[in-house]
């Protein structure tokens, strides 16, 4: 099968604000708005953005922990939105998630061994001996000693807990792991250990990652392709090296410039981008970034910029830096953006 492992098309999620029993119109949080991308087998696809940009909602939509308002999620060509209970459970074996907080994502009442084998036990009944062998095997895979299987999460360090979270995700041999800020809560030295573990696992088992993070340094280190999100929309999607070498969207540029660099000799010339992220309930008209954008022109206030493909295989949504006229002569390309995104 040569198609992409995961294909996301026009995914949209609106959260209603409060219940609308007595109100005529309910304001909605536009958490994710018309997002499309693909993930290939064995690839690390990163999603970056600041709080409220919708990156965590995407993770939950992919896992179908929340139902999408619109759009499709296809894994190996099957639309998972249409799946019913049992089919959905079977499909979940292919895709697992690693959570941000290594404290609250593990049930405090279960032992390490119980936690990491639980997903398998949902599908088949393990005897005591196979259960132990599986737990030991999983623990070894994530660099922990098998004796740890009898410990409770509260007896483990943050790094060890995150290893458990990864072991749990690995237990079903998934082809895709969604890591939602999986290293953000960890200290730098532990973070390095976990990132190395993820890189090793990818090499050994060919797992694809959807790696969601706000930390550009981490994303640059492990990503193959990166999508930058702002207020629920992808504003730039590019191969990792190209994106960091030459960001095109002004927001990407601001984000990279704002990240502190551990080099005291580097002179900081540019002033940080002004203003704050607007509310996703009432996003600005047109391009959501226009109130903070130094390049904004009249058109940015009126019209939402489409994602326009550039020469080096990236797509950018900006009227100024990536005017849509480039593709207007090629209706085949303009018609289906997802084809472009798959490249």
């Amino acid at each position: 099968m040569n198609g992409p492992l995961l294909k996301v098309q026009n995914l949209t999620k609106h959260y209603p604000l409060g219940s609308g029993l007595f109100k005529k119109t309910i304001p909605v949080i536009r958490a994710v708005e018309d997002v499309s991308f693909t993930v290939e087998t064995g690839e690390t696809f990163c999603i970056v953005g600041e709080s409220g940009c919708g990156k965590s909602t995407i993770a939950r939509l992919l896992m179908r922990l929340v139902e999408p308002t619109g759009g499709r999620v296809l894994i190996d060509g099957t639309d998972i939105a249409g799946l019913k209970k049992d089919a959905l459970r079977a499909w979940r074996r292919r895709m697992q998630m690693v959570f941000q907080d290594p404290y609250s994502s593990l049930n405090p009442r279960l032992t390490a061994g119980q936690i990491i084998t639980e997903p398998v036990e949902n599908f088949e009944c393990l005897g005591r001996r196979r259960h132990q062998a599986l737990a030991a095997d999983l623990l070894r895979k994530v660099g922990m000693s098998p004796e740890m299987m009898h410990r409770l999460p509260s007896e483990l360090s943050g790094g060890q807990r995150q290893r458990l979270g990864i072991a749990r995700a690995l237990s079903l041999n998934p082809s895709l792991i969604i890591a939602d800020e999986a290293v953000s809560a960890l200290d730098v030295s532990v973070q390095a250990q976990i990132l190395n573990l993820l890189l090793d696992l990818q090499q050994q088992m060919g797992i694809a990652f959807v790696f969601i993070s706000h930390d550009l340094g981490v994303v640059e280190h492990i990503g193959h392709r990166v999508a930058v999100m702002y207020l629920g929309r992808i504003v730039e999607l590019a191969p990792c090296e190209a994106l960091f070498a030459k960001p095109i969207h002004p927001y990407t540029e601001a984000l990279i410039a704002a990240a502190p660099v551990p080099d005291p000799t580097r002179l900081r010339l540019e002033a940080p981008v002004e203003g704050e992220v607007p509310s996703p309930v009432y996003p600005p008209s047109g391009c959501a970034f226009h109130p903070r954008c130094p390049l904004a022109v009249e058109r940015c206030r009126i019209e939402v910029p489409p994602l326009v493909p550039m020469a080096d295989g990236r797509v950018v949504a900006c009227h100024v830096r990536a005017p849509a006229t480039e593709i207007s002569g090629n209706p085949a390309l303009a018609g289906d953006r997802s084809i472009l995104l798959a490249q």
Partner: peptide, 13 residues
């Protein structure tokens, strides 16, 4: 252990 672009990507930290 801080990821740094000057040392190359996708390497073990």
């Amino acid at each position: 252990s801080v990821p740094d672009r000057r040392r190359g990507r996708q390497r073990r930290l």
